[in-house]
Write a protein that binds this DNA or RNA. Structure first.
Lengths: 157, 157
DNA sequence: TCCTACATGTTATATCATAACGGTCAGCGG
DNA sequence: CCGCTGACCGTTATGATATAACATGTAGGA
């Protein structure tokens, strides 16, 4: 199960371990992983690619977990705030975090063809943005680092 | 007129020189800097901060240059395709390019309070994303590199 | 002149996101 | 036990961002 890349891996395991990790974090920080939130995270983990809020909402709706937009957006807000998921700004879509537990600045390689996303685990305190911020006195709150393109499989296809 | 930062500078000059550069590029590449496109670029240069498509549309509308969304979006598409402007994904907003002529991978420091944007001039072929892409065989078409936070002035305020 | 390519004008609609309000339920102090 | 409080959820409505589709205009070359 590599940390970065478009490889096959033990997907069942990565779903289970991420959910377990999320539960542990919630217990520790007094956060509540309610049914809607938990199911939303499961959906993101199942798909293993970027999903729009309305894609998720449709699945939740089919399962009787709410069918109005705020249901999905609230769950996604919770997951992103807790660090369990990230928003892909370049696609207006959401994805489960692949490095739960690591204190990281997420960076993504996003295939525009199949929407598969690889999350690179980078550090907060180095890199161009951090250097530029330091030299100008800018205080970074959040970073968006994304590369859009074609994954190896879609290049061949 | 620094290339990066939240400094004061000779703004009149940077508007004029960027417009002149854009005209030169259009002449060379057989692109047409029509009135709507030119005015849209001027508006972005005047403001010197990220503007939403509908903000621009309102100004264009006041001046009789069109009042339906496609007018603004088409002009912005042209400007971004030509490299005269960039989209700030984290804000769904647009800004004039600060490094016209340089072959660059834009990176931005964006103040969420005053919406001022500093554009850092980085290179395409280095950095974390490029390394990650190389190691996985991913073909990058476009990058989004943005830091959202507070500029020095807004931190003090 | 006509044709073609590109640009523009316009209507309608798709897509993404949030405001606002009321209902439900668990935990807790009186 | 009771009622308060705070977090969550359900719902309606609306706001914000973006594009599809088609008609019209216009510059420049065959």
């Amino acid at each position: 199960m590599p940390t970065l890349g478009f490889h096959s891996h033990d997907h069942t395991h990565c779903i289970a371990s991420t959910l377990a990790h999320a539960e542990a974090v919630c217990a520790e920080k007094n956060l509540r992983l309610t049914p809607v939130r938990r199911r939303t995270l499961e959906i993101l983990l199942d798909e293993h690619r970027a999903l729009g809020a309305y894609d998720i909402l449709a699945i939740l709706g089919d399962e009787g977990l709410g069918n109005a937009p705020p249901v999905a957006y609230r769950a996604l807000d919770f997951l992103t705030s807790a660090g369990f998921a990230h928003k892909i700004e370049g696609l207006n879509a959401y994805i489960a975090c692949a490095h739960l537990g690591a204190d990281h600045t997420p960076a993504f390689l996003i295939c525009t063809s199949c929407k598969t996303v690889a999350e690179a685990n980078t550090r907060t305190d180095t890199g161009r943005l951090a250097e530029a911020a330091k030299s100008t006195g800018f205080a970074i709150e959040r970073t968006v680092i994304e590369a859009l393109g074609l994954c190896p499989a879609c290049q061949n296809a």
